[in-house]
Design a binder for these strands. Structure first.
Lengths: 117, 117
DNA sequence: GCTCCAGATCGACAGCCATCTATACACAAA
DNA sequence: TTTGTGTATAGATGGCTGTCGATCTGGAGC
């Protein structure tokens, strides 16, 4: 995303008879769009969708050692997906002794869900 | 995504004292997760978020020639983003004469929003 | 100290993605 | 029929992503 998303018109509407009414600029501005795209990108993988689904179904916390066997993937790959979700603010992490417990932070999902509806 | 997402446990829970209760398999199965990830991936770009936002705000149809000037991007790039949204079932297209009019198909978004909430 | 284990990180590799320029296509108008 | 215009496609390119095996880290227990 090496693009300045500042809404900076470059081309003009075609001359002659217009094709349609002029439209308003998007109300969702750059930062909001970037934030929602970041959450959407974190959900843009079936494994991560299923990870979030499992975590939400177990409202408490789920140990990583329970998550890995659910997928036909290596432990580092599952750890990678969990990190993507963590960096998007979708899940949180608490370490207790040897184990790591993940849980859903509903706020990020709620923001996207609110815009979608 | 070269991975069979059929939930096929490979590792066992650690022996000795368990770290947590066994958890249920995700209720969202493979096909549903793949479908939602496809929609999420189509929204995983700020430009596409803003395109959807503009189209939704103009419940009718919006000509491409109105969309291109909103972004600091080339016309082919905007066309590419519109195609991604089209292939994800998020927007529809109607051509009239020289012009192409895009509109939102709310169903795909509603499915994702429903799961998120 | 040493060892074991859960989990994270590293490095590599293949495939995908966003962007551009150049070009093609389809329709309109002269 | 030739020219012009709106939009889509093609091809190239640099960067990002998903996956793996190997390794590191840090706590538990002896």
């Amino acid at each position: 995303m090496a693009v300045d998303l500042e809404l900076a018109p470059k081309r003009k509407r075609p001359a002659g008879e217009p094709c349609c009414e002029p439209i308003a600029y998007p109300e969702v501005q750059r930062e909001a769009a970037v934030a929602m795209a970041r959450v959407a990108r974190a959900l843009a993988d079936p494994v991560r969708i299923q990870l979030v689904d499992v975590l939400r179904r177990h409202a408490g916390q789920v140990c990583v050692c329970e998550l890995v066997p659910l997928f036909d993937l290596s432990q580092p790959t599952v750890s990678h997906h969990l990190r993507v979700l963590r960096e998007a603010g979708i899940v949180g992490l608490e370490r207790r002794g040897l184990w790591a417990y993940y849980y859903v932070l509903p706020e990020a999902l709620a923001t996207l869900a609110g815009w979608l509806s």
